[in-house]
Amino acid sequence: MRIRNVSLFDVVNGVILVLVCAVVVYPLIFVLSASISNPSAVLSGNMWLWPVDITFYGYERVFSNSDILTGYTNTMIYTTVGTAVNVVMTVMAAYPLSLPSFKGRNVIMAAIVFTMFFSGGLIPTYMVVRDLGLTNTMWALILPNAVSVYNILVMRTYYQSSIPGEILEAAAIDGSSDFRTLTKIVLPLSGPILAVMVLFYAVGHWNAYFSALIYLTDRELYPLQLFMREILIQGQMEEMVNAADSSHNQTLLNEEAVKYAIIVVANLPILLLYPLLQKYFVKGVMIGAIKG
């Protein structure tokens, strides 16, 4: 695009968008800076944008805390297993549903899509999960959310629009079974959409807390988000801060440092993956939008 005559409109538009960006990014920079600043500077308001009096105390406390390490490990396991189950299930649903030769697909589609708009609700679902003996196991976080209807729709749209029917027909004429067609033709062609799915599901698992809140009572199984809830929201920090050297003031300072550090640590994978995430997530939303 050529930028020859910058009009008043462009200037006003630019100013508005810069302001929007500033509002969005300020809290994020604040957290990053506060996590490596001297907590007393943060509390007194001396640190307002860039780090002041750099210290890594908060991070030391976070990484030496057994709860957080347990939570981190659990979350990594849940995210890996959960995402694997999700993606496999999504393909197993979307591939047959994308094929015209799959008789009964309209009925199945309708039954699946209906669950997007109506559900039994929290309590009956909870009772099913409990009766299956899944409470206080990691499967309570994975099986009840084994697949997302929305993602099935996105995947199906992708198959229908991006994989030419002629290829599939040719494969069928050559005597390729449906399995073979899936593994040898469809999957190799669906790299980008699989990346979208992996990221969609993985971010969901990483950030989820609701299933864990209702199905888990054993602290050893808690995901990171539940421990974070205790630290950030319920303020249960007693064991995190060193009680020995504490006047009340010191305790307050330590709590503050830990809070910012834990936010950064919890979002580290997302921060590192952000360029990837952005690219593929936007693609996913676009494909979803075609379907409407």
């Binding site: 929007v20 990014v25 950030n207 989820a208 950030l232 979002n267 995430l277």
Partner: peptide, 12 residues
């Protein structure tokens, strides 16, 4: 910039 906060968890 504006897409970034979407990836924060509700707890955070």
């Amino acid at each position: 910039v504006t897409y970034a906060p979407h990836f924060l968890s509700t707890v955070v």
